[in-house]
Design a binder for these strands. Structure first.
Length: 501
RNA sequence: CGGGGUGUGGCGCAGCCUGGCAGCGCGACUGGUUUGGGACCAGUAGGUCGCAGGUUCGAAUCCUGUCACCCCGACCA
């Protein structure tokens, strides 16, 4: 038997983290590069994870009073021009549609027909504030129309110069919430509410601990008054912005005439918010839990929570083993976890057992059950947890079924605990610039640094030189007196700093 | 968009320096042997060497141009 590497994924995380990431995506069959630059094909296993995220998030949005709608993929170019900062932020990465017809090219092939040039170019949406804002302006007349609480599931395009599977692709899938409110306070409350929804989802569904906080001025969404984010720490010590919620003030309302008559009959501008998470969450999920054997999925999001692998030598054994597997599947499906029937898959493909087993290890299925004639005879199962590794152990069938949901809950909790511990171990309170520089030295592991700071050009310049970014000012940060490590100016709060994706 | 690198069967690569029959590994398929585990043996299929031009008796190999992708920056969810 040929000796294999000790781990299913090569290189390991320690050897080359970016390459390890690519290999995990490939080995787990999540996605692949496409024929279009910067765009990926999301394969069934990867898309099923996204569908689970969608289902759960969608429920949370609806539970907080939002409704889904759909707006056009195309945005007239002039719409983008209305909010000055917004243009500046997105103009450099827009795909532009200029023609509506092709014709044969005299040199062969096709070309856009010169006669079919659009009067006004259309932008493929990089985000939909402008087109949705313009629509809201028509919807809104009276204070009685408020609040408007809308979410859209969509694809957007940002022509990024450098792309990475799930983390940054030219086209990506996301949801964008857009709301309109009568008062500033109500809009601010909405912004924070949705940030909390995201934090709840990250921690309780993805088992990914996050820090909720407010972005500094330079990291703010173009056109926003305040941007809040949830920040997670990946295993390589880099931070990932996993979700954002923006308080847009009246910037877009004024740019797009989103106004209404208030109770006193005066026409006033409304207050708007927007918030979103994307398929980037899948990248965060991968980099939070996966190990050198591939993907590790939290049970809440796993397309299959249990995979059953029948083992047999001949047709007679096959019949017995498969019948046993199918009844086991039915028993497991009668159990519930996270308010849903267990998702159980039998893999009866004509492949060697070992290879099949490793495929499911690399795909990250939380519980693997191997059933052979011996288990059938003994009325047992041979089960292994993905999160703890190892070969697994024999368990009486009834006991396994009765405890399956609890085991999944244990795995979910164990993943969150493990990730939280890793995050906390890679977190430091730093009080001087020298410490800060040492913490983020090329050879250092990096991580999160809580520091006193005063936002401004001086800090930005120093951070840029160190390739470190201000992630956010944590909401739960206590007020404490200190001095900015970059400028020495007095500061009342610590911010979180890290290298970032 | 700046710096570096790579384009050769489905995938991963060698060959290029020094021009001379297009190779290897994995995968696929067929047959056999195996079977509580990423198997073994034998055989089969599959490539005008990214594209265009040039040099040459002859180009995967040398020259020019071009396109794509990857990595490192800058920009960004």
């Amino acid at each position: 038997m040929p000796k294999r590497a000790q781990h299913a994924i090569s290189p390991t995380r320690a050897e080359n983290y970016p390459e390890w990431y690519q290999q995990v995506v490939k080995a787990a069959d999540l996605a692949e590069t496409s024929d279009v630059r910067g765009c990926m094909v999301i394969k069934p296993w990867g898309y099923a994870i996204w569908e689970n995220m969608q289902r759960i998030l969608d429920g949370m949005f609806k539970a907080t009073g939002h409704e889904n709608a759909y707006f056009p993929l195309f945005i007239p170019m002039s719409f983008l021009e209305k909010e000055a900062e917004h243009v500046e932020g997105f103009a450099k990465e827009c795909a532009v549609v200029t023609h509506h017809r092709l014709e044969p090219n005299p040199d062969g092939g096709l070309r856009p027909a010169p006669a079919a040039e659009l009067d006004e170019p259309l932008i493929v949406r990089p985000t939909s504030e402008t087109i949705i804002g313009a629509t809201f302006a028509r919807w809104l007349e009276s204070y009685r129309d408020l609040p408007i609480l809308i979410n859209q599931w969509a694809n957007v395009v940002r022509w990024e110069l450098r792309t990475r599977m799930f983390l940054r692709t030219a086209e990506f899938l996301w949801q964008e919430g857009h709301t309109v409110h009568a008062t500033e306070q109500e809009a601010r409350d909405e912004t924070r509410l949705m940030l909390d929804v995201y934090a709840d989802f990250a921690q309780n569904t993805m088992a990914m601990p996050v820090i909720r906080g407010e972005k500094t001025a330079s990291e703010r969404f173009p056109g926003a008054v305040a941007t809040y984010s949830i920040e997670a720490l990946m295993q390589d010590g880099k931070a990932l912005q996993a979700g954002t919620s923006h308080f847009l003030g009246q910037n877009f309302a004024k740019a797009q005439e989103i106004k209404f008559q208030d109770r006193s009959g005066h026409e006033v501008y409304a207050w708007t918010t927007s918030w979103g998470v994307s398929t980037r969450l899948v990248g965060g999920l991968i980099m939070t839990h996966s190990d050198d054997d591939g993907l590790v999925l939290p049970p809440t999001l796993a397309p299959a929570q249990v995979v059953i692998l029948p083992i047999y030598k001949n047709d007679q054994e096959r019949g017995q083993v498969l019948a046993y597997c199918e009844s086991l599947q039915q028993e497991l499906q009668a159990e519930c976890y996270a308010e849903q029937s267990l998702r159980v898959k039998i893999d009866d493909r004509d492949l060697r057992g070992g290879e099949k087993k490793w495929q499911w290890v690399k795909r990250g299925v939380p519980l693997r059950v191997e059933i052979g004639p011996r288990d059938v005879a003994a009325g047992g199962v041979f089960a292994a947890r993905r999160d703890v590794g190892g070969k697994g152990q024999g368990v009486p069938r009834g006991e396994f079924v009765a405890q399956a949901a609890q085991t999944l809950a244990d795995i979910q909790q164990a993943l969150l605990d493990r990730a939280t511990q890793a995050r906390d171990q890679a977190t430091a309170r730093i009080n001087t610039l020298a410490e800060f520089e040492a913490y983020f030295a090329e050879s250092a592991p990096g991580g999160l640094a809580y520091c006193h700071f005063v936002d401004g050009p001086e800090m930005e310049a120093q951070l840029k030189a160190l390739k470190v970014t201000a992630r956010c000012v944590p909401l739960e940060a206590p007020v404490e007196s200190g001095s900015c490590i970059f400028t020495g100016q007095p500061s009342q709060r610590r911010g979180v700093f890290a290298r970032a994706y």
